[in-house]
Design a protein around this nucleic acid. Structure first.
Lengths: 122, 122
DNA sequence: TGATCATATGCCGATATCGGCATATGATGG
DNA sequence: CCATCATATGCCGATATCGGCATATGATCA
């Protein structure tokens, strides 16, 4: 039984179309970071990051394919919005390791208490 | 000024040598998952995941280059261990988005209270 | 309709990646 | 020293990726 909602997708992740792959690129992460500030048109991202517009559009496409962003038309602009909920696979995956860390810290805690008890007995 | 310890590495991440890139590969993630169980020799990973040994070694190399795993020699085996501390960039980066999520929930809360007030006034 | 702004798409070349296979390195035991 | 186990490395081919540039699409306004 799975520890969390993390699926543990088996074989090939078919390159893109995978959240992990999408955030594997630094520029895409920066685009997401910019979108934390809220819905923005492509041009704003271009200005903020000084990345050529075609590249921004392409990265937005990848991000949109995995659902990390959505877009809507507003006049002749296209507004992109962060879909933070789609970070869930990443979050769940990471959560497994948090548990390991806590468990490990607990064990250290137990160990320290053990040392303490031994000290008292001498 | 940075929101968290997340560095926000600027330009090219030079492919590998980037933690996010390292976990972009599903097989590498599975290797890390296996190592949650503790230090293991390469052979154990090979058995657990049914991935050819050379590939496992290569992926371990990538993971080790970014510090996500470390290894030590034990007889003629080489034991690999997960370095949970290196998961910090993930934590820090994700933390930004947790705030967005909470903020959004707060806003929903506000909205519900607003509805409530309006209902009372009628 | 034509000009312009905003964005998307297509093509290119360089480079990287990944899997598969063979083989090298390294340690151990007889 | 040789055989063997455990792991790493090298080479290959197929494919993907990314940036850069030009250009197409699409909407708005005069």
């Amino acid at each position: 039984m799975p520890i969390s909602a993390y699926d543990g997708e088996m074989a090939r992740s078919s390159t893109t179309a995978d959240v992990f792959n999408a955030i594997g690129d630094a520029r895409r992460r920066r685009i997401l970071d910019v979108l934390i500030g809220g819905e923005k048109p492509v041009g704003a991202i271009v200005d903020d990051l000084s990345i050529p517009q075609p590249q921004v559009s392409k990265h937005l496409r990848v991000l949109s394919e995995v659902g990390l962003v959505t877009s809507r038309a507003e006049g002749r602009c296209r507004l992109y919005r962060l879909e933070a909920a789609r970070l869930r696979p990443f979050r769940d995956w990471l959560a497994q390791y948090e548990q390991v860390l806590s468990a490990r810290l607990d064990r250290v805690d137990d160990y320290l208490q053990e040392l303490q008890r031994q000290g008292e007995q001498q």
